[in-house]
Design a protein around this nucleic acid. Structure first.
Lengths: 250, 250
DNA sequence: CACTATAGAGACATCGGACGTTTGTCGCGG
DNA sequence: CCGCGACAAACGTCCGATGTCTCTATAGTG
């Protein structure tokens, strides 16, 4: 297959070269098709791919435009990718968070304003009030970390970490936390991060963020282990645990 | 638009739920179309999107299959996204690298084998030999950092950092380095990282990686500034330099 | 003159069918 | 047992038609 992929590459290249700057309007599909030497069907597939990557914005009845190309748009797909990762690679994601989130939180301690601190305090309060509602806990947890990282002013960093902490990943961790009666302890960890940020203590913020990510990772491990054991029983009832990596001998 | 996007969501959801595990074969397009209540054209757009995201593997004359869903595949798109970022957000990318790459390099110092160290030494030698060929320098530079990070054994981390250091970003930095006669100094920085790794000194590796990223960032700044000034002159010949952030007063 | 309702044109959304090309397979023959 | 050729299945591409939404210009109204 070359035609459609060529079209994708051509449009991408026109954007990268500046020939199609953010906000620019593309020619109508039939004209674009003629220009690139393929049918309208092929152009539609190409445009659809770039639209799903948030590179193009297709407005029905109007036309197709280049988006702002802001990091928050282009990095949106990272979250979708993480959602599809296999269980055993989620620990790799956690290891990346473990490396990145503490440093980012430390940076946030240097840049955070009083208003942002108050916002965090409010989220913490909400979290404490919702201590028995898993759905809300996840929501406030997401808001807490997003708010912290966003204060670095680095939109790319924020989008990356948002993507690495996809919704289903967070949901799994919290499921473990709640079933393990560790929700309260985890909320305390958020409080510790908040206190470090309020005192603008970079190293303390970094340390408390690392401890928090570490706790999340530990609970994710337990959830994944329970999950793997369940899958194992489903596949071979009563049989001892064996290979779980999905490989197969020829 | 809902039909095609619904189809994308449905297929994604079937994969996420395990109904379509890695390697599974999807029904033929016409059947898939009937099953999801839309025409084959719509299904083809949906499949194309998921293929471009490396979620599906379409084999002409054979069928459509779910990929391995390995991080290296799913995170491949990150590089394409970074390639399209605007100049002013590339500094954000550099800030992320500045936070992540030193920690990762430090981790590599703990896990690297002798064979991998020898591989690095070879790349360093190649780099020195190619000191006047920008193209090769970029190639060896990419190989060096990829090899270092890959020794952490974390494929997700490796793919992320590969994506953050997209080819055009590296090319710009090296253009600055060469024009500024700093190529030699930068190769020395690679050597310093290598020495730290060889002595398995985590903190030293971390420090030398930070210094190296910092140098890259500095040269990227000069390249971007020169670029912005040129764009400014192109827009207003002879006019004094003014705002270069692209904002506009009403 | 200012504002609103409306008709038209333009553009994307979706469909259905047709044909070419590639690939995997299965049976035949050496 | 192995190689070869024909068949069938599946994706790649194209074309044309129709539906639906948006923007805009125009005519009408107060």
């Amino acid at each position: 297959m070359a035609l459609t992929d060529d079209a994708i590459a051509k449009i991408r290249s026109m954007i990268q070269s500046g020939e199609l700057p953010p906000g620019a309007r593309l020619p109508p599909e039939p004209q674009l098709a003629a220009q690139m030497g393929l049918s309208r069907s092929g152009v539609r597939e190409a445009v659809k791919v770039l639209e799903s990557a948030r590179v193009l914005d297709v407005r029905r009845g109007d036309g197709t435009y280049v988006t702002s190309l802001a990091p928050r748009l282009l990095l949106e797909g990272l979250g979708l990718a993480v959602e599809l990762l296999r269980d055993d690679t989620l620990l790799e994601v956690m290891e990346v968070r473990r490396m990145l989130e503490p440093v980012a939180t430390g940076l946030a301690a240097l840049r955070m304003t009083d208003a942002q601190l108050d916002e965090l305090a409010q989220i913490l309060e909400d979290m404490r009030a919702a201590a028995d509602d898993a759905e809300k806990l996840i929501q406030f947890d997401t808001a807490f970390h997003h708010t912290v990282i966003a204060t670095t002013g680095n939109e790319t960093l924020t989008s990356l970490l948002d993507g690495l902490s996809s919704r289903t990943l967070r949901a799994r961790v919290w499921r473990g936390l709640i079933e393990g009666n560790a929700a309260h302890k985890t909320i305390d960890e958020h409080h510790a991060i908040y206190l470090a940020l309020r005192s603008r203590d970079q190293l303390l913020a970094q340390a408390s963020a690392l401890i928090h990510v570490n706790t999340s990772e530990a609970w994710l491990r337990t959830v994944l282990a329970a999950n793997a054991a369940k899958a194992q029983r489903r596949a071979h009832p009563g049989a001892p645990a064996g290979r779980i990596d999905g490989t197969d001998s020829p």
